[in-house]
Nucleic acid binder design. Structure first.
Ligand code: SF4
Ligand code: SF4
Lengths: 162, 162
DNA sequence: CAATCTACGACCATTTTGGTCTTGCTTCCA
DNA sequence: TGGAAGCAAGACCAAAATGGTCGTAGATTG
C-alpha cells in the first residue's frame, strides 16, 4: 500500500542531484542560463540506476515543465525553477500520473460501486491531506532537511470534516 | 502512486458497516456480546462486492485481531473493539501488509542503492507523517466525520527535520 | 560530418492485484 | 443427529501495473 513507485523514487533522486549541481554552479559563478546541466547518463551513473530508464523519467519530467532539456554535445537537463519552488507532489504526479488513493477520486466515476459507497468522501479528505503534505515539501527540502516548514498547513492536514 | 488497494478499500467499507451495525444493536439494547455480527455474505451483498473476496479480507482482518469471527448458523463477524479504537492505519496494514512508501523502509535494506541513496531519510519522514495521519483516523471517524481530530499531531506531521 | 545528447514509442519480463474454486471445519437448531 | 449456515485456508488464475530494454530519429556543438 501507499508505495511510491521506483520511477518516482528515481525522479526525486535526479531532481535532488540537479538541485545540488545548480547550487555548485552558482557558487562557482558559472553561467546562470544552463547552470548545473547534467546529462541523463551522468546522473544514472552517480546513483547506479538503469540509464535508459532514467532518461525516460527525465523526459517526462521535462514534458511536465519541471526540467529544461538541452540536446547536443554537453547538453543535458537542468531545473526549470529554483529547487525550493518544485514540490515533491508535482514530481510524483508528473511521473506516476494523477492517480490517487481510491479509484473513484481520479478516474472520476470509474468505481462501479460509487453509488452505494459510503466511504468515498472521508477517504477523499485523507487523500487531500496527503496531497497537502507532499505539496509542502520542496526538492530543496530534500537536500537539506528544513525545520521551517509551513506550520500553516497543519490545520488543513488533520481536518477531516467538511 | 499512493494507491490504496481495492482490498483495503473493501476492508474499510466492511469495517464501517460493522461499526454501524454495532451502534444499531446497542441502541436496540441487544446482547452486547455478539452485537452487530454480520455474515460476510450480507456485507458483500450490501455493497455489491465479490463475496468470496470479501470473505478472505474479513478473514485476514480477523487474524489481525481487528474482528471477531463466529462460525455456524447466524454467525459472522463483529468488531473486536469499539470503532473509535480501530485506526485506518491498522486496517490498511493488516490487509496490504506493512509495505510503505519506499522499498528501503520496510524491506529493510532491500534496495541495492541504499548505500548511495541520499533521499532515503527525508522520505522516511514523509512516510512517518502519513502513518501518523492515518493512525489518527479511526473507523468511527469514517462513519461520522469528526472535526475534533487531534490537533496535537499536526506538529509532527509537517516536521521533516530530524 | 561526427560525436554527443535528447525524444519517442514499441516491446517485453516480472510482480502485484483482484478474483475464483475447492475442500474442510465449526456451530447451531430442528 | 444431521443438515444448513457459516467461517478457514489454500491453490489457482487472469488482468493490470511496474520496471526495464531496444531501436530509431532529431537536435546541437565543435
Ligand atoms: S469503493 Fe468507494 S471509495 Fe473505493 S473506489 Fe469505489 S467509490 Fe471510491
Ligand atoms: S532509492 Fe533510496 S529511497 Fe528509494 S528505495 Fe532505494 S534507498 Fe530507499
Amino acid at each position: 500500500m501507499l508505495r511510491l513507485t521506483k520511477k518516482a523514487d528515481y525522479g526525486l533522486m535526479a531532481l535532488k542531484y540537479l538541485a545540488e549541481q545548480a547550487v555548485l554552479a552558482e557558487q562557482a559563478g558559472a553561467d546562470l542560463n544552463l547552470s548545473g546541466a547534467r546529462s541523463a547518463k551522468d546522473i544514472a551513473e552517480a546513483y547506479h540506476i538503469p540509464p535508459q530508464l532514467l532518461a525516460k523519467i527525465l523526459q517526462t519530467l521535462a514534458r511536465a515543465n519541471l526540467l529544461i532539456s538541452h540536446a547536443g554535445t554537453n547538453g543535458g537537463y537542468a531545473l526549470a525553477r529554483p529547487a525550493a519552488d518544485i514540490s515533491t507532489f508535482e514530481v510524483i504526479r508528473a511521473i506516476d500520473g494523477p492517480l490517487f488513493i481510491t479509484s473513484c477520486i481520479t478516474i472520476h466515476g470509474a468505481c462501479d460501486l460509487a453509488g452505494h459507497c459510503t466511504i468515498k468522501e472521508p477517504l477523499r479528505k485523507v487523500n487531500d491531506s496527503i496531497t497537502t503534505l507532499l505539496s509542502g515539501i520542496s526538492v530543496a527540502d530534500l537536500i537539506e532537511p528544513a525545520d521551517h516548514l509551513p506550520a500553516a498547513m497543519a490545520g488543513g492536514l488533520v481536518n477531516i470534516e467538511r
